[in-house]
């Protein structure tokens, strides 16, 4: 109330003041109004699509997760948080969560180092590096579905190339249907994921290495530093931001991983390769448990959110420390 009274007064003042400096303030005001419409006009198209497909959808996923619902008929039975309680005691969900974290670990400790080694090789005096580089990068351009189908045949129990190779070097006892075996399926898939994504990290590391100023190496050469020393004291420390970025990408990517597993094993055999995303898909679109499926997907969102927030906080602390 008081505020508005003050405002009124201010306006009154404005009216009674002689309009000599005020001449400027009037266009300024309408300019601000104009700016408002410009901002809306430029942002609205993107905002509408983003709000509809992303923000609204996340909210609705939470809403649906409170119901029991087949998605086919229109009867939604309100269940409160019951779906989440069921989820907490669902063994398959825990297996899938465990597999997701296994994938996170495997990605960090295989894709990143292999990517880094590839990137370093690109700067080594190996002849024909252009050719090597072209081939190294190719897996990343292939669609995940194509990769999945190709590797199904590579891992095949009868004529797969891996078994043929093992047969030739006399390791017949190691032969097996790699994807049909509960013990090996997850590792076979992880190796394929590594094949697909190591080149991606190679590209990131390569871009970072190119960015390292040449004179740092020249100075080290004058001091007579060995290549190994140069790597440890110049290259590696300057790559840390890229290693962190790559780790974030790798962790978040692994938490929402779906395509390859869906194509290669569909979570089987016996749920041994189930991921949160494949389990969610199965519950929703195969078993028509829309409500339960929603609770899995919302849980995925929460986990991804917590992990990202954690990494961002950690990263800011590190930046603050420097």
């Amino acid at each position: 109330m008081q505020n508005s009274a003050n405002k009124l007064n201010a306006d009154d003042d404005h009216v009674y003041n002689p309009p000599k400096p005020g001449r400027l303030s009037k266009p300024k005001k309408s300019r601000k109004k104009q700016d408002f419409w410009v901002i809306i006009g430029f942002l609205a198209p993107a905002m509408v699509i983003y709000a509809l497909y992303v923000i609204y959808s996340i909210a609705m996923t939470f809403y649906y997760s409170l119901f029991e619902w087949t998605g086919i008929d229109s009867t939604l039975v309100f269940k409160g948080l019951e779906n989440y309680i069921t989820l907490m005691s669902d063994g398959v969900f825990w297996t899938s969560l465990q597999n997701n974290f296994l994938l996170v670990g495997a990605s960090l400790f295989t894709q990143l180092p292999i990517g880094l080694i590839m990137a370093l090789l690109l700067f080594s005096p190996v002849k024909g590096m252009r050719f090597f580089r072209s081939v190294y990068f190719m897996p990343f351009l292939m669609s995940t579905v194509a990769i999945g189908i190709l590797f199904i045949y590579i891992y095949d129990g009868n004529f797969g190339i891996i078994n043929q190779f093992l047969g030739q070097i006399g390791l017949e006892s190691w032969q097996r249907g790699w994807l049909g075996n509960e013990e090996t399926a997850i590792w076979a898939v992880i190796a394929t994921v590594c094949w697909q994504f190591a080149p991606f990290y190679m590209v990131l590391f390569r871009a970072a290495i190119v960015g390292i100023p040449e004179d740092l190496y020249e100075a080290a050469d004058i001091d007579g530093a060995s290549p190994r020393k140069k790597f440890i004291h110049i290259t590696l420390p300057l790559l840390i931001p890229t290693i962190i970025t790559s780790s974030i990408l790798s962790i978040i990517g692994s938490l929402k991983y779906f395509d390859l597993i869906y194509v290669m094993t569909d979570g089987g055999p016996n749920n041994s390769t189930e991921l949160m995303a494949t389990y969610m898909y199965e519950q929703t679109f195969t078993n028509f448990n829309m409500g339960y499926g929603s609770s899995i997907s919302f849980t995925m969102f929460i986990i991804a959110f917590i992990v990202t927030a954690f990494i961002v906080l950690f990263d800011q602390k590190r930046k603050g420390a420097n």
Binding site: Y53, V54, Y56, S57, I58, M60, T61, Y64, G71, L255, K256, F258, M276, A277, M280, Y281, T284, M290, G293, S294, S297, F298, M300, F301, A304
Partner: peptide, 9 residues
């Protein structure tokens, strides 16, 4: 955001 979180809606 995991795509799957928006899949059903």
């Amino acid at each position: 955001i995991p795509i799957h979180t928006t899949l059903i809606p």
